[in-house]
C-alpha cells in the first residue's frame, strides 16, 4: 500500500505526460501491492521513484505502459485515458521502458536488429529504421557495435544497447527500472552522462543515491501503510 506525494511542479495542470489516479493493483487477490496511488509526471521532470523492496515500483512502471492492468483507478497518458491493450500501443511508442534485466530486452541475434526492431514496428522503412538505430547507438556511444552478437556483450554494454533500443523509438518519456544495477563505476558515470544530455522526462527507479542526486528533479517515495 502506498500514499501519494503530489506534483509540486505543475500541480497537475496542462503539462501532465503520465497521470495515475487512485490506482490499485494486486498479484494475489486481497493482497494489494499498490492501493489508491496518485502519481503524475510532467514535462522535463526527472522523478526518482523509491521505496522498499516489494513496494511496487516496477509494477507502477508496467501499469504505465499497460503491461499490467490495474484493478482499479485511471491511467492517463499523453492527454488520454488508457484502458484497453489497444490504447497502450501508442503509449509504448511514446514512453520507453528500460527493463531491469537487459537480457529480457535484447532478443534479436545482433545489436542492429535489436535496435531497429522498435522503429520497424513503428512503420518506418528499413532504411529509415537503420538511420534511427545508428543515431541511437551513437547517443549511447556504441557506434560500431551494429553487428555484434547481443548475448556476447558485457553487462554494461548490454544495458547501453537496451537503452539504445528504447531511444531509437524517440520516446517523449523514459521509464528506467534500476538502470544502474550491476554496473561498475565507470559504466555508471557513462550512463549518467548520457541521461543528463537527454531531453526526455524520466521516471527512475534506483537505490543508488549518488546516481539519483546527479539526475533527478523530484523524489517520490512509496510508503507501505
Amino acid at each position: 500500500m502506498v500514499v501519494f506525494l503530489g506534483c509540486a511542479v505543475c500541480g497537475g495542470v496542462a503539462m501532465g505526460l503520465i497521470k495515475l489516479t487512485a490506482v490499485s493493483f494486486s498479484y494475489i487477490p486481497d493482497k494489494p501491492v499498490i492501493s489508491g496511488l496518485d502519481f503524475e509526471l510532467c514535462n522535463a521532470e526527472r522523478i526518482a521513484l523509491s521505496g522498499a523492496n516489494g513496494a511496487g515500483k516496477s509494477t507502477i512502471l508496467k501499469i504505465m505502459v499497460g503491461l499490467l492492468q490495474p484493478d482499479g483507478g485511471v491511467v492517463e497518458a499523453f492527454g488520454r485515458v488508457r484502458t484497453k491493450e489497444r490504447d497502450f500501443y501508442e503509449v509504448r511508442s511514446r514512453a520507453g521502458l528500460l527493463f531491469q534485466d537487459a537480457d529480457d530486452q535484447l532478443f534479436s541475434p545482433t545489436v542492429i536488429e535489436d535496435v531497429r526492431f522498435g522503429p520497424l514496428n513503428q512503420g518506418l522503412s528499413q532504411t529509415n529504421a537503420d538511420i534511427k538505430a545508428h543515431q541511437a547507438l551513437q547517443i549511447v556511444g556504441l557506434s560500431g557495435f551494429e553487428d555484434r552478437v547481443a548475448h556476447k556483450l558485457s553487462g554494461g554494454e548490454k544495458r547501453l544497447v537496451a537503452l539504445a533500443t528504447v531511444l531509437a523509438m524517440e520516446p517523449e518519456v523514459l521509464l528506467l527500472d534500476e538502470p544502474t544495477a550491476g554496473l561498475d563505476n565507470k559504466t555508471m558515470a557513462r550512463l549518467v552522462g548520457i541521461l543528463e544530455d537527454l531531453p526526455q522526462a524520466m521516471v527512475i527507479i534506483s537505490h543508488d543515491q549518488n546516481f539519483l542526486k546527479k539526475l533527478v528533479t523530484r523524489r517520490v517515495n512509496l510508503v507501505p501503510t
Binding site: L67, Y89, S93, L97, F99, D101, D104, M169
Partner: peptide, 13 residues
C-alpha cells in the same frame, strides 16, 4: 513472459 513484454514495449503487435 518478460521477453514478450519487452517486445510489446517496442511496438510488437
Amino acid at each position: 513472459d518478460r521477453v514478450l513484454a519487452a517486445m510489446k514495449c517496442r511496438g510488437f503487435r
